[in-house]
Design a protein around this nucleic acid. Structure first.
Lengths: 162, 162
DNA sequence: TATTGTTATACTCTATAACTATA
DNA sequence: TATAGTTATAGAGTATAACAATA
């Protein structure tokens, strides 16, 4: 059994360190790139007082008028219970409104307000601009390739899990 | 000014919903793929009672013997203060050990123990297996392309930020 | 009985501020 | 004065369990 230190003598400061050992994991590389893009999105959304999650919820409600909180939870990949606060926040700022379904009074139909549409549109432009500063190091074709490869991994993950 | 609902009459359940409106953002696609791969890594590490962050720290210490907590924090992309608990956990389980630097007694040199090396090796195999179930939908060449494209975005983010 | 929205709660992850010991 | 490690704390993000209203 080897001991914890291979060499003996005084311990010296290691000036150069790196994460090369982790780069073999595809997931690690995805994570690192994700952190950068997430940071850019947060910075872009800050002036609108929106978080990435809130913006995503707002956008999905906008393109899916009448969506219920439960359906939204599935798309956001989170529990129903955690969607409540997101919707409450968007409603309190008049970005989203809701209405009970007459056919099933347990459910609510969510819709984006006119004000919500304006905010969403401006926020989307801001994200595209900030994200573009990073992503534009890739050509349009490379961006399309990247998204296609990522989507295949995501789809396989869904297939494995569900 | 348009009203919140374009159509009038009773609200009906929208059976089909989707997130197509978000797919135009490269970051959204990165995030969704990341969630899948992160989930696979968590599942792979569960038997070892390691979290993704702990495994990453353990691996980096293993390939950078003598690294200090501050240097580790930089590589992990987090604050020094949050590294403390990670190191404490790894040390309490005899996966990592530390020793004060004689040249600067404020700093600690971190090293992986023999036991840590065994656990890291087994955990790395488990992650590679679980991650492989997702990533193997891509050819080796496609995987390399994916990593290369992600790394360029990450590098641009670092350049923009730092 | 089952489902939708909701509340309460806890745990993880992360950032900030302040402390200590060393430099 | 400045830096390394540490502690305390707070804010997001997320999961689980239990409840009321409705089906």
């Amino acid at each position: 059994m080897v001991s914890e230190r291979e060499t003996s003598g005084p311990v010296e400061l290691r000036e150069a360190v790196d994460d090369e050992g982790m780069r073999g994991f595809v997931g690690y590389n995805i994570k690192r790139a994700y952190i950068r893009v997430q940071g850019a999105a947060q910075a872009a959304l800050a002036p609108f007082e929106l978080r990435v999650l809130s913006f995503t919820a707002l956008s999905i409600i906008g393109t899916n008028p009448g969506i219920t909180p439960s359906q939204l939870a599935v798309l956001l990949g989170m529990e129903r219970s955690n969607v409540v606060a997101v919707i409450d926040d968007l409603m309190s700022r008049d970005l989203v409104s809701r209405e009970r379904l007459e056919t099933d009074r347990r459910r609510f139909a969510l819709t984006m307000t006119a004000r919500g549409g304006e905010v969403q549109k401006a926020a989307a432009r801001a994200i595209a601009e900030f994200e573009g500063r990073l992503v534009s190091v890739l050509s349009e074709e490379e961006q399309a390739t990247l998204v296609r490869l990522l989507n295949r991994i995501e789809a396989e993950g869904a297939a494995t899990k569900d």
